[in-house]
Write a protein that binds this DNA or RNA. Structure first.
Lengths: 106, 106
DNA sequence: ATTTTGCGCAACCAAATAGTTGCACGTATA
DNA sequence: TATACGTGCAACTATTTGGTTGCGCAAAAT
């Protein structure tokens, strides 16, 4: 089974769940109340998110709180890094171009 | 049809294609040579990437060069932004904790 | 002790997806 | 002009995915 953070954040509901529990840990039921879906559906999403370490569980009595595991998000950020370099370079080039035009005007 | 950059980068082959053409624009055939897959499969991935504006085409004779559209990557980066804030805050907190311990040692 | 609540899990279903094969079309080359 | 090449696209298949329903189990409430 393919299970990586990229595949995990492909689903809009899962992205929303991540944003939601980033603020504070929540139970599946509490999460489900925020969306137009059932607890079981949320539970499945949480399972996927847990399997790729984007969230972690924390039992408290019969309730299970899910909270964001921010470290795994860095993996996505790390992959983006290489592209960030590109757009920063291009921005610099644009910047240089603009300042060249500016100088020519003077 | 769901078509957003998050869903696009969920596939490892598509991520590899993006990295590949980030360096320089390439034709579908040239891209396919880099992977253990057929041209048609690559073509399908390119279609998806094109549909969500992560790449753009540039015809040259009968060849079609595909190049990275770096701007759309920023959309993913923008979403990550909110989590980056979290891990930076946590790092600061850890940093403060460490310096507190350091002071106590003195 | 019995009922309710919160939960995970397995079975099932419809829709989406990755990949293959075959074809059509325009561009080069002979 | 005839042939080869580079490509997109449609049809088909196997697999995956998101969602639902219906369990069973353990903790809390009655």
């Amino acid at each position: 089974m393919r299970r990586d953070p990229f595949q995990a954040i492909a689903d809009p509901t899962r992205r929303a769940i991540l944003v939601l529990i980033a603020v504070q840990a929540m139970t599946p039921n509490a999460i489900a109340e925020h969306f137009d879906t059932t607890r079981q559906a949320v539970s499945k999403h949480l399972k996927i998110l847990t399997e790729c370490d984007l969230v972690k569980q924390q039992s408290q009595g019969r309730e299970i709180y899910y909270q964001l595991e921010v470290d795994k998000m860095k993996e996505i950020d790390k992959w983006l890094e290489q592209f960030r370099k590109i757009w920063e370079t291009r921005f610099q080039q644009l910047d240089q171009l603009l300042s060249t035009i500016k100088k020519q005007k003077k």
